[in-house]
């Protein structure tokens, strides 16, 4: 049976994401900095995978494939982090509580192993969602 764990998700800036963004949205630096989900070692155990495995992260909005990595900035078990960018935003709920601010931090996601699923490029992850990706 496929294993699935539920985590509380936050999306934030990281310096690698900042550097990557300024290097260009299509740069490898940006891709490497943002296509990760940082998780606590305990959550790796719960999910039963090694670090640096691709996972499918699903929220109420949709799913995205990312590489699960161990946190550099320490998290508590149950809390996960994706650097901000089009990949993170693929699953951020757009609901704003009438404040203009979507739910960038503090929304539930399911994480499951997807070791062989490919990670899309920055532009394709957006185009795919918008139905503009020519397959």
């Amino acid at each position: 049976m496929e294993k699935k764990i539920t985590l509380n998700m936050i999306t934030c800036r990281t310096i690698q994401q900042g550097v990557g963004m300024e290097a260009g949205k299509t740069s490898q630096k940006y891709h490497d900095a943002c296509t990760i989900i940082q998780m606590h070692p305990d959550d790796f155990k719960r999910l039963g995978v090694w670090k640096n495995t691709n996972v499918k992260v699903t929220s109420s909005v949709g799913s995205v494939i990312l590489k699960a990595v161990e946190t550099r900035e320490d998290l508590v078990p149950g809390l996960a982090h994706i650097p901000m960018g089009p990949w993170a935003n693929r699953i951020v709920p757009a609901y704003t509580y009438s404040t203009g601010e979507p739910c960038f931090k503090g929304f539930p996601v399911d994480v499951e192993v997807a070791a062989n699923a490919p990670i899309l490029s920055s532009i394709n992850v957006l185009k795919d969602a918008c139905g503009l990706l020519r397959k």
Binding site: V61, G85, P86, P102, A129, G131
Partner: peptide, 15 residues
Amino acid sequence: DPGAHFPVDAMISSS
């Protein structure tokens, strides 16, 4: 670049 920083549903509407 809202495409990178807005939640996807907003960008689907925008597109």
